[in-house]
Nucleic acid binder design. Structure first.
Lengths: 180, 180
DNA sequence: CCGAAACGGTACCGATCGGTACCGACGGCA
DNA sequence: TGCCGTCGGTACCGATCGGTACCGTTTCGG
């Protein structure tokens, strides 16, 4: 018998949510594309929202791991964040940031999904702050928040333009910022 | 008899879409809250998507008019864009940018709603570019694109943090950019 | 070797989705 | 006065929404 129903649900849901939006994907479709039975789904998750939160949680973890790895590969400097973003923006399936998309799709700021999305962003800022410290940049937290704003701006811009240019643009701004 | 059904539909839909998200608001709710009959709706709009596009169109026009006016009121310098944004972010009903929200909610980049949202952003860039020219800033288009990225970043950040601080942060970055 | 746990499949629930058809009532204009 | 266009109201459509209940089957550990 097929095992790991939960893992399949998470994987399928993550792909569908990211590609189509959360509200646009019904439970039915997740079930059919994952091959998981309806009952099994509700055995693992209390409902759709719980699945959304779990997906966001996994995405947060893996995305930050990916960012760390790619930044290190580009040299480890905070500016290399935007080199990593450029890679992501060029991907065929790029459709923005799940956390941003979640914030726009769920109006209630106190909903579990929104809280998870907000938590993701603060964790990214923590990561960036550590990169700042590693590079001996003064006021690492303030710098990290500035970079986070640039990252979000670049993500939205890349989604709008359908081109990875926004990463370079943000990188240029960040460079001017550090030089000032 | 009640008149101006179309105007009421647009006004009600705009409020509901902005506050709750587009997919989250059904036609039924727009009808009941606007007091417009079901048939009248489909007489004015070919469907929900046409209504969405019309709402985005109106929003684009009025938002840019509002931005122009507020920037002028703050002095007319491109940096005053972020003073205007700070006002918006502080509003109780602030829930990001309709164009950004639309881009994240609609996966198909070629859909009319997405095209309208993209058009809005290019028009905003045009507006910012003109502000750059008025302030005698070199390379106005490149500067406008940088500012647009900062604006989007500030909007997303403000939505995430639920506080208007992001506007000042973006203003600081923009200032450093012009000084460089 | 047997039972518990996890599984896939399906029937079903009320609610709502976007959309169509038709109705009677009211408005301004000729 | 009569007519025509706009209006609000409602019944209805098939499809899908998220969620529940129950089924028989498979896998695995005691």
């Amino acid at each position: 018998m097929a095992v790991n129903a939960r893992a399949r649900l998470l994987s399928t849901a993550e792909s569908l949510f990211y590609a189509n939006g959360i509200r646009a994907v019904g439970v039915e479709r997740i079930l059919s594309e994952s091959g998981v039975g309806r009952a099994s789904f509700y055995r693992h998750f209390s409902g759709k929202e719980a699945l959304v939160v779990a997906v966001l949680e996994g995405r947060d973890e893996r995305w930050r791991a990916w960012l760390s790895e790619r930044v290190a590969a580009h040299g480890g400097h905070p500016l290399n964040i935007f080199d990593a973003l450029a890679e992501r923006f060029a991907a065929q399936d790029f459709r923005g940031c799940v956390a941003i998309n979640t914030m726009t799709e769920f109006a209630d700021a106190s909903s579990p999904a929104r809280r998870m999305a907000a938590l993701h962003k603060t964790r990214v800022i923590d990561l960036v702050e550590q990169l700042m410290r590693d590079a001996d940049i003064p006021e690492p937290l303030a710098r990290a928040k500035q970079f986070a704003l640039l990252m979000d701006g670049a993500i939205v811009t890349a989604l709008r333009e359908g081109a990875p240019d926004a990463a370079e643009r943000a990188r240029g701004i960040a460079q001017a910022l550090l030089a000032a």
